[in-house]
Design a protein around this nucleic acid. Structure first.
Length: 297
RNA sequence: GGCGCGAUAGCCAAGCGGUUAGGCAGAGGACUGCAAAUCCUUUUAGAUCAGUUCGACUCUGAUUCGCGCCU
């Protein structure tokens, strides 16, 4: 078997373990499709594959930047390109946007200009809306400054807005799915383990190494709350609780994105399943559906 | 035992004799270079029983439970 095979799914569904297992078994390379695993040193809170696991399988898409740097989806495409040489490649991760890039491509648009972005971010929402109104442009989501700003960046530099992935024919994507209640239990357990494994200490060390973090790294689930503990703003117990809640909310949004953007082949999991059992099901889906048809980038 | 205060949704918490409290959590949705981000929508009430009233979560009484004080 050759080619690229994908496995999506919400956080804490066990994607990584399943794909690690399959990669070891089949001699594949792994590409992480995750916007947080790119941060060097953010290991415990992102549930990054261990050094041992990484020695057994070639990995791409990990540790691309420091927490002080700003990452971007365009930048992730570099990791994708690096992994091209592998004859058999498995891609897994929780960032649905990256699967969109992989399967649907990226319409031409100007890269982010940090000065222009900062200028737009300083504007009130009403001003952003007014500027779009001047250009007779309406977005679906006129309350969302993020999207208004990006639209203005593209328009003000002479580009035209992408048509939208959601409106195009959906592409197939396999994903793991747990009953919500079980997933919530898995999330709670995982967060507690992160604290037992030293998330606070890791955060403290990273803050020493990098006093200023990029906005995205700063907001990373687990690290934001651990930082609040270190600053004495919340207790450890409160931070654990808040991290669990934010992770649950992330998982819900991840599933919503997959449902909305892809024709998902859901691979159902239950509490009695082991990693090899789920891996077998994933492999069966991959064999049946064939290698992913990637967009030409 | 007596007196007082309280009881509102999974949690916190208001006003009101008739028209949506609100927040959090949960659920659904959007998404093209920050995505673990950003934004939109939204279910679930009035401890129990009786009374007053056209109409009670709101007023009255009893009961139950909780808290405080007294003996």
């Amino acid at each position: 078997m050759r080619g690229t095979f994908l496995l999506a799914g919400a956080t804490a569904t066990g994607k990584s373990a399943v794909v690690q297992y399959l990669a070891e078994q089949r001699g594949a390379a792994l590409l992480s499709a995750d916007a947080m695993l790119v941060y060097r040193g953010m290991d415990i809170g992102t549930a990054k594959p261990s050094q041992e696991e990484r020695l057994r399988v070639p990995y791409y898409g990990l540790d691309c930047v420091t927490p002080a740097e700003t990452f971007s989806s365009a930048r992730w495409l570099e990791s994708l390109a690096q992994s091209e040489t592998a004859p058999l490649r498995f891609v897994t991760g929780g960032t649905g946007l990256y699967f969109s890039l992989l399967l649907r491509g990226l319409d031409p648009a100007p890269p982010v200009d940090s000065e222009r972005r900062a200028a737009l971010e300083a504007l009130p929402l009403a001003e952003l809306q007014a500027r779009l109104a001047q250009r007779k442009v309406t977005l679906e989501d006129m309350q969302n400054p993020r999207r208004l700003i990006r639209a203005l960046e593209i328009l003000e530099s002479g580009g035209s807005l992408p048509r939208g992935w959601g409106s195009k024919a959906k592409v197939k994507l396999p994903a793991l799915l747990w009953p919500r209640a079980l997933l919530h239990a898995r999330i709670a357990e995982r967060v507690r383990k992160m604290y037992q494994s030293g998330l606070l200490e890791e955060t403290r060390a990273l803050r020493t190494a990098y006093p200023e973090w990029s906005r995205t790294a700063n907001q990373a689930i687990g690290y934001a709350e651990a930082g609040a503990v270190l600053d004495g703003k919340v207790t450890r117990v409160e931070a654990i609780e808040q991290t669990i809640i934010r992770t649950r909310q992330l998982a819900r949004r991840q599933e919503t994105y997959l449902r909305g953007q892809f024709e998902v082949t859901w691979i159902a999991c239950s509490s009695s399943d082991t990693v090899p059992m789920i891996a077998e099901r994933v492999w069966a889906v991959w064999e049946k559906e064939g290698a992913a048809k990637l967009a030409t980038l």
